[in-house]
Amino acid sequence: MTMKKIALAFTALLSLFAFINHSGGIYKTNTGNISFYSYTPVKDIRASNHKVKTAFSSESGQLQFSCLIKDFEFKNALMQEHFNENYMESTTYPKATFDGFITSVSAIDFNKDGTYTSEVTGKLKIKDVSKKVSTTGTFFVTGGIVNAKATFNVNPYDYNVKIPKMIAPKISESIEIIVDSDYTSNNK
C-alpha cells in the first residue's frame, strides 16, 4: 500500500516537473499583428488584424497562429463586409490558423539579446483548406521579449476563395501577408 502511494506521488511529481519544464519555454501573445496587401494596377487593398493569438515553444520550435477573419480591419467598411460575406465566408469559416515549426529554433538564444533568423514552415489553414507554406522569420530578442516578423505570399485561389471574373483584375493572385508579433514568456 505504501509503495503504491509512493509510486503515485512520484508520478505526480514527475508530471508536475514535466509541466513546469515544458511551459517554461512557451512564448505567447493575444495581440499579434497580421496584415495583408493585394496590389494590382486597378486597386490596392489592405487590411490588418491586431488581435491575433500566437505562441511558440522555444524548445520544440512549434509555432501556432489563430485569428478571426472578422477581426481584419479595412479602411472601407463595405469592402470589409464583402471580404467577410462574399470572399472569406467568415460565418462558415470564422478562423484562419497556422501550425508549424521554427526549423532552427535551437540556434536562437532567447536569453541573449540579438537578431536571429530561421526558416518557418507549417500548414496555413484558411476556409478549411490546409496548404504548406514556408518563409524566413526574423526574431528580435530584447530583454526577454521576442519580436518575430515574417512575410510570405498566398494565392487566394488556393484557399477556395471564389472571385467573380469581373472582380478578378482587382484582386492579386499573390497576396502579401505580413506577420509581426511581440511575444512574452509566460513564466516571467
Binding site: 509503495m3 509510486a7 512520484f10 508520478t11 514527475l14 508530471s15 514535466a18 515544458h22 512557451i26 505567447k28 493569438k53 500566437t54 505562441a55 511558440f56 515553444s57 524548445e59 520544440s60 512549434q62 501556432q64 489563430s66 478571426l68 470564422p94 478562423k95 501550425d99
Partner: peptide, 28 residues
C-alpha cells in the same frame, strides 16, 4: 510503477513532438 512511468513518458514525449499540442487558448 514501471509500466506507469513508461506510459507517462511516452505520453509526455508524444505531446512535445506532435502537431496536436495546443499552445493557444483558442475558444472563439
Amino acid at each position: 510503477l514501471r509500466i506507469k512511468l513508461i506510459l507517462f513518458l511516452a505520453f509526455f514525449y508524444s505531446n512535445v513532438f506532435s502537431q496536436d499540442l495546443n499552445l493557444i487558448d483558442d475558444n472563439e
